[in-house]
Simulated scan of single mutants.
Amino acid sequence: MSLSIPISQRVQQISMSATKEMPILAAKVGDCVSLGQGVPSFATPEHVVKATSQALFSDTLAGKYSLQPGLSALRRAVADYLKAEKQVEYDPDGEVSITVGAMEGLLTAFLTLVDKGDEVILPEPAYASYIEQVLLAEGKPVFVPLNKKDWSLDIEAVKSAVTERTRAIVVCNPGNPTGGVYDPGQVRALAELAREKGIVLISDETYDYLIYDNTPHLSPASLPDMGEHVITINSFSKKYAMTGWRVGYVAAARPLMEQMMKVHDSAAICAPTPSQYAALAAITGPQDVVAHMRSKLFERKELAVRRMRAMEGVFDFVEPRGAFYLLARYLFSSEDSRTVAIQILEQAKVITVPGGSFGPSGEGHLRLSFGATQADLNQAFDRLEQWAAKKKLA
């Protein structure tokens, strides 16, 4: 059904993320197993749920608006975490804001920095929502391919992509959808470029806790003289199994934050207050739950890699160094990735995400998430193997 009323051009030029589209299609197919959306299988830690319930029962303010930038105790806790873990000092009273997940923090950053026609450099394959959010801000995504042998940054290519219209470079480290990890030297080179060119690094650190080979995670905000050149964004969703609580944070120098808060106020007023209480319990509570989930995800990564290697000749992939994704190139078809993903969905009943949604370099690939339980992962890979065997016979 078509609309007879006009729709804004900014909305017409964006699309629903394939990550969200595939589960919707799968619901119509039925009996599907997911290697799709990045949702860790773990329940939200019990102490987080209890603390939130207690706050709702005992604190009359827990169900009301918080201050616009978020609960002061949570902002202090975030600032303490950033200082202790990343050696970055942010003032919780003017440089930290709690957002409706990392997604709102990202959109707030783009809407603050980008005017119509301005450019944002996206090393890609890149998280699909970066692309749509830049377009929504009426900016231009500028794609710079990652090195396919290990999904590392091509620093010279990034430098060559900078123009007078460049406003930001997005850094997702560890990477979604690739599972790649940028070495500290690459992060330092990007920081030097940002300072030299007067642009901003938007540093998405959602998966900073999940690096499998002990490469140290370097936050660009910790480097000298970055000041107004970094916006740090993080989420409670993956680290604490809180995807449905919709809470994250953004940290930036005060002059930047003052402008970003205008967008945050217009879009959300504040993050959901009960979710902020949950986040406070998560970040200040026992961290052994994170260590447990990390160890389980390492086991699942090993399982996924082993099962994918057993399908040599069907898929080719780079072993992930971080996050809980791998981006696999399919070798059995020349069709576009959405077509292949739908074939697998309908014929094998396995949800994957088409790589083309992550930028030009993602075409010909499928993103597989190994956040599910080992039982679900094995079932999904069994189905993939059986489907691939039938396809070879055909």
Rank of each mutant, 00 (worst) to 15 (best):
S2N: 09
I14R: 09
S15E: 04
S15T: 02
M16S: 14
T19Y: 01
P23G: 01
I24R: 15
K28W: 02
S34T: 15
Q37N: 11
G38D: 01
F42E: 10
E46G: 06
A51W: 04
S58G: 14
D59Q: 01
L61P: 01
G63T: 09
Y65A: 10
S66M: 13
A73P: 08
L74C: 09
A77H: 08
L82Q: 14
K83W: 05
E85A: 15
V88H: 00
E95P: 05
I98C: 03
G101K: 05
L111D: 04
L111A: 02
T112W: 06
G117M: 11
E119L: 12
E119Q: 15
P123N: 11
A128F: 14
S129Q: 13
S129I: 15
E132L: 06
Q133K: 08
Q133P: 01
G139A: 05
P141Y: 06
N147M: 12
N147P: 02
N147F: 04
S152I: 05
V158Y: 00
V162C: 13
T163P: 11
T163Q: 02
P174M: 13
G175M: 12
G175Q: 10
N176R: 08
P177G: 09
P177D: 09
P177C: 09
G179H: 09
V181M: 10
Y182W: 03
L190R: 03
A191D: 00
I199Q: 06
S203Y: 14
D204P: 02
L218Q: 08
P220R: 00
A221S: 15
V230S: 04
V230W: 09
V230E: 04
T243S: 08
W245H: 02
G248M: 07
A252H: 03
M257Y: 03
S266L: 11
A267V: 15
A268I: 01
A268C: 12
P272Y: 00
Y277S: 10
L280N: 07
P286T: 10
Q287A: 00
D288E: 15
M293C: 11
S295V: 01
K301W: 07
L303G: 00
A304Y: 01
M308S: 11
E312F: 04
F317A: 02
R321W: 07
R321P: 04
R329G: 02
F332D: 06
E335A: 13
T339V: 13
I344T: 03
Q347A: 14
T352Q: 00
P354H: 04
G356W: 00
P360H: 08
P360R: 06
P360M: 09
G362Y: 02
H365N: 14
L368T: 13
A372F: 08
A372P: 13
R383D: 12
K392E: 15
A394K: 13
